[in-house]
């Protein structure tokens, strides 16, 4: 199978790494070659973060370039805009509607742009948007927005739902399992 590229973007501290770890596990179990490239260190301090997930028969490079992502999973609207150029023509953007002000906005040097997702839609790009943060709260843990988005992305991939649920079970602390499973369902159904 040709290599599939999934870009996971968000703000440091939003839990992008757990999402990519679970995805990597799922694709490996489906018998694919997998590479997941993570960002550690400096950019975790509230900066923009990106993780690359790639799978297929044979994956060489650990990174995804502009115009290569089949799916972008975005935890935050501004980050959807920032990383949009990485989407392949015809690819899907799955974006949370959550907004987090970056430093220049907090300090009043810039405005948080209005209607980002509408603007992206108007370029003819396929966008699935959902309030991942609110759904996470509904699931019982504000920290499970990552799993909500994972659920939303799982819906558009042909891998049985049980496989995802198993991977979540194997990856999250037992204490948070129930909330995370609910979060997955809410994302899957969104």
């Amino acid at each position: 199978m040709a290599v599939k590229n999934i870009l996971i973007v968000g703000v440091g501290g939003q839990g992008t790494l757990l999402a990519s770890k679970i995805m990597g596990r799922v694709y490996l179990e489906q018998g694919f070659d997998v590479k997941v490239s993570e960002v550690h260190g400096m950019s975790q301090r509230g900066g923009s973060v990106v993780t690359y997930v790639r799978y297929g028969d044979k994956v060489w490079s650990p990174v995804i370039d502009k115009g290569e992502a089949d799916i972008i999973i975005s935890f935050e609207q501004l980050e959807s805009a920032r990383w949009l150029s990485y989407l392949k023509p015809g690819g899907v953007l799955i974006s949370s509607t959550q907004k987090l002000d970056p430093a220049p906005v907090i300090m009043g040097q810039a405005e948080y742009p209005k209607d980002i997702l509408d603007e992206i839609l108007s370029l003819g790009i396929k966008v699935v948007s959902l309030p991942a943060d609110e759904l996470a709260e509904k699931a019982g843990s504000t920290r499970s927005a990552n799993i909500v988005l994972l659920g939303a992305s799982a819906k558009s991939q042909d891998i049985p739902k049980e496989v995802w649920l198993e991977a979540i079970k194997a990856s999250v602390p037992p204490k948070t399992l129930e909330a995370n499973l609910r979060a997955f369902e809410l994302g899957f159904g969104a």
């Binding site: 900066g47 923009s48 115009g67 805009a81 150029s85 023509p89 970056p102 906005v105 948080y112 742009p113």
Partner: peptide, 12 residues
């Protein structure tokens, strides 16, 4: 690739 027609405010 597609791109928005304006720069996106940074997030240092």
């Amino acid at each position: 690739y597609n791109e928005l027609p304006h720069p996106v405010v940074g997030r240092p």
